[in-house]
Design a protein around this nucleic acid. Structure first.
Lengths: 339, 339
DNA sequence: CTCCGGAAGTTATACGTAAAACCTCGGGCG
DNA sequence: CGCCCGAGGTTTTACGTATAACTTCCGGAG
């Protein structure tokens, strides 16, 4: 692979290609931009492409972005990258973006990334729009005063200021969990709720409370990690009164912690206590017993989010979406102990 | 929040700020670029800043990048975003980058992201350099012909073409695992190796083989998921001869799968078989028993990688690094069954 | 009084691209 | 024969910024 560069080490520009092909820079731009039908002869177009390939020409994106005033790049804001759910949202968004010549840049909101003076410093002006997933409304303030269109995923749909909303029907997910446990015969429940403030968890809690109306429900809160979940589980079981036979968790991580805590207390899952998770992470099938949980179409919400953003950028009205979720019953839930 | 914009809805430029402050555009650039000591009076600088704030001025990065010929942006290429390890590498790299006014863009290599015509389409020209973590050499071909400096993390250091290498001492990690198990009294081993081709796994395998020289070692390969690990574990135990008492896994995910498979076969961990992982993911403490594993300084290698890239960009010679790793003994390993 | 140098700016230019506006030429039609 | 039109280009300009090069003014040294 010899490099037939004309000038020293500098990267070739469209002007270099023009010189090599014996045409003007404008013609190069037309040919490479695929806007040459009827304006440039087949012959000339061919030699331009040839010259470009020979020089290894790559258009300078900074110049293109400046000229066009848009960048074909979207920012995806997520609360935590270590959570597999967001990696999957990214995957979906990036797939749709790629199909439209767009790129997606990830921005994990303050999670030890350090206090950049301006969170946008690296990309702000290089963006066409923003997609935010599962972010608290106030954490997005910094992004609000931008004139960039904002699409919110898995967030409070009453939040105006977003150009579009796409949500998961997590309320229905919790109702499915409640129905599943009731059909198994459970009557005494505990809810292991996330201590992280988030709209999605508020909805889950409200839906569960409504679906279990009339039954005994203890609620405890835990941070989203295994050890926090274990401590919270112990607190839930230590409360006075007859022990719950089913423990509904806001999240698979919490459920995994709950299982550990229960076993440490000498209780078997699901024989003595049933446990349910939420999200259906890889973790759900890594632990034993495998978790009964709610599967979320993570890639799908990413796709829909990007589609909505593209629609907004095209000046269309993006319709809001509510994606269905499904209960996946596995080994961590079963009938309550006979008594 | 009234918007005191001069022109309609268009975003204000440095020229708008200049007009508002009654100075020239060059002066605005000097002041806002912090290059005005001795060139502009304190008074004028103040009014410029005031005007910029009033207009909500944000410099156009595309224009700045074009002018400067660099973007203060690095690309971080990783094999899979769903793996927590890479999320941590990103965190470290981004923290160092932010300290230097740099941004980091993530590029999860072909993992369902769809066949973008050009993987760089979204960012190529907007990059100053590339950091690749744990990537196979040939998967980086597309990035090689770029003239951008490439820093490789956790990869074959003999790969020239990289401007710098930073590695984890995974060989030592495996030696620590071997020593730990031998000190517990184990003599018959199985190695649950990753089927994913990667330099880091080759090194782990070689180091383990050397450290266990003389002992009985069965090796089986598995894809990096729980179910693949379970199948491979069953194969390992089905081999003829006396059963191994310790199962060394290339990765925590494999170890989690191994534990599940063993329990399903009626074997207890660690009473009948000890299991060790590698990486120390959150998963390691989510399963039961908690995994004895090798903790990797993931954030640290990200930091070192970005430091190396910054050094290269500054024209300095980046020295290669080899970061120490440490065995973390937990519940999944113990003495072999008495016999 | 002249001249010089520094303070405090301004003017001009380049970065590489996309695209609007313009040019040239040969052929077909009235 | 004159005119217009379309094919096949070229010339020119603008995007917004950073900075080199130039200007102007003023106070002090010789």
């Amino acid at each position: 692979m010899q490099s037939p560069e004309p000038t020293g080490g500098a990267r070739p520009t469209s002007r270099d290609v023009a010189r090599a092909a014996g045409v003007s820079q404008a013609t190069v731009s037309l040919v490479l931009g695929d806007k040459w039908r009827g304006r440039v002869s087949e012959r000339t177009a061919g030699s331009v492409r040839e010259a470009a390939a020979a020089l290894g020409y790559r258009p300078n994106l900074a110049a293109r972005n400046l000229r066009l005033g848009r960048t074909r790049t979207a920012l995806l804001v997520v609360p935590a990258l270590t959570n597999e759910f967001f990696a999957r949202v990214y995957t979906g968004a990036a797939a749709v973006a790629a199909r439209h010549g767009f790129g997606v840049v990830l921005y994990p909101s303050p999670e030890g990334v350090g206090p950049a003076r301006d969170p946008f410093a690296s990309s702000r002006a290089a963006l066409d729009g923003i997609i935010a997933s599962s972010m608290a409304a106030d954490a997005l303030e910094a992004f609000r005063d931008t004139d960039l269109p904002l699409v919110m995923l898995d967030s409070d749909p009453s939040d105006t200021g977003a150009a579009a909303h796409v949500n998961l029907d997590v309320a229905d997910g919790m109702r499915q969990v409640a129905r599943h446990l009731r059909e198994l015969g459970h009557t005494r429940f505990a809810h292991l709720a996330s201590a992280v403030p988030s709209w999605t968890f508020d909805v889950r809690a409200a839906a569960l409370a409504e679906a279990l109306a009339g039954a005994a429900v203890r609620t405890v809160r835990a941070p989203l990690d295994v050890h926090g979940a274990m401590a919270a589980t112990e607190r839930a079981l230590a409360e006075p009164g007859p022990r719950p036979t089913a423990l509904v968790c806001d999240d698979d991580i919490l459920a995994a912690g709950a299982c550990k805590a229960l076993r440490r207390l000498g209780l078997r899952v699901p024989e003595d206590v049933s446990v349910t998770g939420f999200d259906d992470l890889a973790l759900a099938t890594a632990v034993e017993p495998e978790l009964t949980t709610v599967s979320l179409p993570a890639e799908r919400i990413g796709e829909r989010g990007m589609e909505a953003l593209l629609a907004v950028l095209a000046g269309e009205q993006a319709r809001p979406g509510l994606l269905p979720v499904a209960l996946t019953a596995r080994g961590s839930s079963g009938p309550p102990p006979a008594r």
